[in-house]
Write a protein that binds this DNA or RNA. Structure first.
Length: 923
RNA sequence: GCUCGGAUGGUGGAAUCGGUAGACACGAGGGACUUAAAAUCCCUUGGCCAUUGCGGCUGUGUGGGUUCAAGUCCCACUCCGAGUACCA
């Protein structure tokens, strides 16, 4: 009987299903462990061989933890709202729900074939009303909250309303984007609509006029993480900056906590670093610069307060509100022309051009320390959205100011001794200050760092500014002009003000529309829905929520997926708490992984969840790239030349389907059948074979390099696929998929099978294992246990192979040895392990078998060989009986002093004892 | 530009604390079995030299340094990858 993976895998997949092997429930008698994969978006293309990499890694960990006695939660679901289904719907008229449903079915079939231990009873789909009810619910909680900066947490907006009625906005400790202050009388005198509008500046989910990334091609706004270099990540279309009224989430209020709490979680340094950069902590000072001939003052932000003596001009962002206040009549025409020019440039054009541009406003400001008058300019190198949208320019020590000063021929005053500023600015925060003293402030002779501190102190005392922390992190834009997303549980009252639906009206279900396009009047697709009104007849919001809405709290829903009273019950949340191990790609570093942490912290503030961070440990699996194959057609012929002979001909490389190439050898018959135009192809072969060329590219249909896991499973079995994906290299590393090595792991499984069965006869017996066999298996137990904890799965697979070779060569037939082997192998190759488990006559399933523990006694060497070095040079080898390594070596080294004299005629000066069987004697 | 990774045979990759570099696998070469092929098994496989013996030299991107000992630590550089980018 050969290793019949088809039969085995079918049999046990059915068994696990019939016996609910992977179903989990709260069990207070056992410690919990929560292993989670980033759930997939079910695309029409199905899974390729790269997708399961992370799923296999987490599956191994989940199975291992279960065998170590943990109650393991390991769920799976679908991030089912999204753009591709909607675009497909626009093209075909097919409802996104139908295509999504179809794709999910296909994903499930593919996943099932690989033998994952998911508890499918807990499956979630973000597009199901019973799921998005809780997305909508969370949004409403955010709408009804503000961020209290004194308590550093979210609080009910009603508390703020009460405060305004008593004290106005002064000292209200609320995170806000409001510029205006108001008194209690003013507040109380406002109409309901005015109050509602004012509160929008404080709510955590708010409707605000913000600069958004507008993508005309997609007809929707995008969040910052959905845009890269002025191009939309989905689709690759240009994106413009535009002010629009959009729903936003006050993520920026949480910037400090999002940054601080990174210290409490076990994520890779690189992804923490990415988040740190994205949040962008920057400590500096805000300073006021009076404007000549005006009561207005310019408020600027700087991290280099020390350079105040080198300020030779000021710059405002074109969108800054100060612009109107400083532009003079004689500069009006020039300024308007410039603003117009800037407005019509897209983000992309600005980034590409990168040339210095700007215009003089006509006004001057007064340097509050030197008293000098300096011109105020307007330029698009200053961003409206960061700091105050205005800067003090110090051309000697900032490269952008330097470029601007050179372009407009403005003075440059060096402030650091020895800095050469003839060609470029000196930006480093390092050196001794000069040109920086007067009767008010003396910085000359100080180090830059001391000067920064001294200046900050001075400006606070002199009342011209204050120390301030700025974050780069912006509020998340939360509305999309799309159909296939969560509707907002918001209607508009007679004043046009947004109002909450009642919790009892949730979920607000996505309505039917005749077309999935914007309306003729340019409203979002929901504008087409009939009767899209709340229970009171008022119109409902037409936008839908973005993709990250549904994925922000899904890990909580898995804890209690069928609860219709709460997102998650207190009981379930307090048992499962947080995700202990989260596996997914790095591409979500500044999107999902920020939003999820924000969402979780918001829920934490109200006690809906008991952990401040959602994902304790994060492992980023690498991307699997494609390995394309090429054939080389001789120009103007239908003749193809083998790879190593192509240099003699003028050829065109053509992508060839990697599925008809094996170890770079082309299957010529399959090639002829592949495309009609190749049916009569001729070949120039080497050694009777056609060798293809290859290249590493993205895995995609157009490159014909997509490898489908189903095909691998059909050919080699799921266990081979699982082992091979792990064997390819470290889970975290990106690597090309190369089917070439898969025979090696497949051979390993066949060899293992061959040790158990000869023909149909089971070879194993109840036999006391030899010391040799015990050593081999305990070495494996130690290695695999340690490897799994560290995600070094590739070296584990190597260890399995070594062990099988050892057991084979020592002809070990002891059941107890194989029993341990099978348990160790089961997380990696669950099907064959389950089969052998039963062959060995064990009860239950291998999933519940206890993970074996290694015994150091068995691992000891009976004889240890030592190399003795003199002055680092090996002189002789000796063997001694095993003992405690350190002690033995000490005595050994000293007892060989005679030998040292004998060799060198000298006494050893010192004897260095180091691990790994080397003794070094220094004479 | 800034930040963070990385560079080891023909290939993917091992080397846990600085301690015999190249585990394991692929590929390649040779052999056994076979009428033949596939499958399977055995041997060789970093490079150079020697191979009627042992063996010798060299070798982890480049150049220095620390150390009895460096792929690993330090300094400088080259190249590659990722993130981010007029963030004041």
């Amino acid at each position: 009987m050969d290793y019949n993976f088809k039969e085995i895998e079918k049999k046990w997949q059915q068994y696990w299903k019939d016996h609910n092997t992977y179903k989990v429930d709260i069990d207070n008698g056992r410690p919990k462990f929560y292993v989670l994969d980033m759930f997939p978006y079910p695309s029409g293309a199905g899974l390729h061989v790269g997708h399961p990499l992370g799923y296999i890694a987490s599956d191994i960990y989940a199975r291992y933890k279960r065998q170590k006695g943990f109650n393991v939660l390991h769920p799976m679901g679908y991030d089912a709202f999204g753009l591709p289904a909607e675009q497909y719907a626009i093209q075909t008229g097919q409802h996104p729900e139908i295509t999504t449903e179809k794709n999910i079915k296909r994903y499930r079939e593919q996943l099932d074939k690989i033998g994952f231990c998911y508890d499918w009873d807990r499956e979630v789909r973000t597009c199901e009303p019973s799921y998005y009810k809780w997305t909508q619910w969370a949004f409403l909680q955010m709408f009804k909250s503000y961020y209290n900066t004194a308590l550093d947490k979210a609080r009910p907006i009603d508390e703020l309303v009460e405060y305004f009625a008593k004290n106005g906005s002064e000292g209200c400790n609320a995170h806000t984007n409001a510029k205006e202050e108001f008194t209690a009388e003013q507040w109380n005198g406002m109409t309901k609509a005015e109050q509602s509008q004012t509160l929008m500046n404080y709510r955590i989910a708010y409707l605000g006029n913000t600069m958004v990334n507008w993508c005309p091609k997609l007809g929707t706004v995008l969040a910052n993480d959905e845009v890269s270099e002025g191009i939309s990540i989905r689709g690759g279309y240009p994106v413009e900056q535009k002010v629009m009224r959009q729903w936003c989430l006050r993520v920026s209020a949480y910037a400090g906590r999002l940054l601080r709490d990174l210290e409490t979680i076990e994520w890779s340094e690189s992804i923490k670093e990415t988040q740190k950069n994205w949040i962008g902590y920057s400590e500096g000072a805000e300073m006021l610069f009076p404007i000549v001939g005006s009561d207005e003052q310019l408020l600027i932000f700087t991290t280099r307060a020390d350079t105040i003596f080198g300020v030779t001009f000021m710059v405002l962002a074109p969108e800054s509100e100060y612009v109107e206040k400083v532009v003079t009549d004689d500069q009006r025409v020039a300024v308007d022309a410039y603003l117009d020019e800037v407005k019509h440039k897209t983000e992309r054009e600005r980034l590409i051009e990168k040339k210095v541009s700007g215009v003089f406003s006509g006004s001057y400001a007064i340097n509050p320390v030197t008293g000098k008058e300096i011109p105020i300019y307007i330029s698009d190198y200053v961003l409206a959205g960061y700091g105050t949208g205005a800067i003090m320019a110090v051309p000697a020590h900032d490269s952008r100011d330097y470029a601007f000063a050179r372009h407009f021929d403005l003075p440059i005053i060096p402030l650091i001794e020895g800095a050469d500023i003839s060609e470029e600015s000196f930006d480093a925060k390092d050196g001794i200050m000069m040109n920086s003293s007067n009767e008010r402030l003396q910085l000359n002779g100080l180090q830059v760092k001391e000067a920064i501190a001294k200046t900050k102190k001075y400006i606070e005392e002199a009342g011209i500014g204050k120390v301030k922390v700025n974050y780069r992190l912006r509020d998340a834009i939360f509305s999309r002009q799309r159909y296939w997303g969560e509707p907002f549980p918001i209607y508009y009252d007679e004043d046009g003000q947004p109002q909450c639906l009642d919790d009892s009206e949730l979920p607000l279900q996505l309505p039917e529309v005749d077309k999935f396009l914007p309306t003729e009047t340019g409203e979002p697709p929901l504008g087409r829905a009939k009767n899209w009104v709340a229970g009171n007849g008022r119109p409902l919001e037409l936008n839908t929520m973005p993709g990250f809405a549904g994925s922000s709290a899904y890990y909580l829903r898995y804890m209690d997926p069928h609860n219709d009273k709460a997102l998650v019950s207190k009981e379930a949340n307090e048992y499962w708490r947080q995700v202990d191990l989260y596996v997914g790609g790095t591409e979500h570093a500044t999107g999902h992984l920020i939003y999820s942490r924000f969402w979780n912290k918001f829920l934490y503030d109200y006690g809906y969840v008991c952990e401040a961070e959602p994902f304790r440990k994060l492992v980023n699996q690498g991307m699997i790239q494609g390995r394309s194959n090429f054939v080389y057609r001789i120009k103007d012929t239908n003749k193809f030349v083998s790879f190593n002979l192509k240099k003699d001909y003028d050829t065109t490389p053509i992508h060839v389907d990697v599925n008809i190439v094996s170890n770079d050898v082309l299957d010529i018959d399959a090639f002829k059948a592949w495309r009609p135009e190749f049916a009569n192809a001729e070949f120039i072969l080497e050694d009777g074979k056609y060798i293809c060329g290859w290249a590493i590219e993205k895995m995609s249909k157009s490159m014909f390099n997509v490898v489908n896991p189903d095909d691998i499973v059909a050919r080699y079995g799921a266990d081979t696929l699982r082992l091979y994906e792990m064997f390819l290299g470290p889970v975290e590393a990106s690597k090309p998929w190369d089917t070439n090595g898969i025979d090696g792991v497949n051979r390993f499984l066949k060899r293992l099978w061959g040790l158990v069965f000869k023909g149909d006869t089971m070879q194993l017996i109840d036999e006391k294992p030899s010391a040799e066999a015990l050593k081999s298996i305990h070495k494996l137990i130690k290695k695999v246990s340690q490897d799994i904890e560290q995600f070094s799965y590739n070296t584990s697979v190597a260890a399995f192979m070594i062990c099988v070779n050892e057991l084979s060569s020592m002809k070990c037939r002891s059941k107890s040895v194989y029993r341990d082997f099978v348990v160790l192998l089961s997380p990696f190759a669950p099907h064959i392990a389950e089969e052998l488990w039963h062959v060995l006559g064990e009860e239950g399933t291998v999933c519940d078998a206890q993970w074996p523990v290694w015994n150091e006694e068995y691992l000891k060497e009976s004889v240890v060989k030592y190399t003795v070095l003199f002055n680092g040079k090996p002189r002789f080898n000796i063997e001694v009986a095993a003992g405690t390594p350190g002690d033995e070596v000490q005595r050994l080294a000293l007892s060989h002093e005679g030998a040292a004299r004998w060799l060198d005629g000298k006494q050893p000066k010192k004897v260095i004892v180091v691990p790994n069987k080397i003794v070094n004697v220094v004479v």
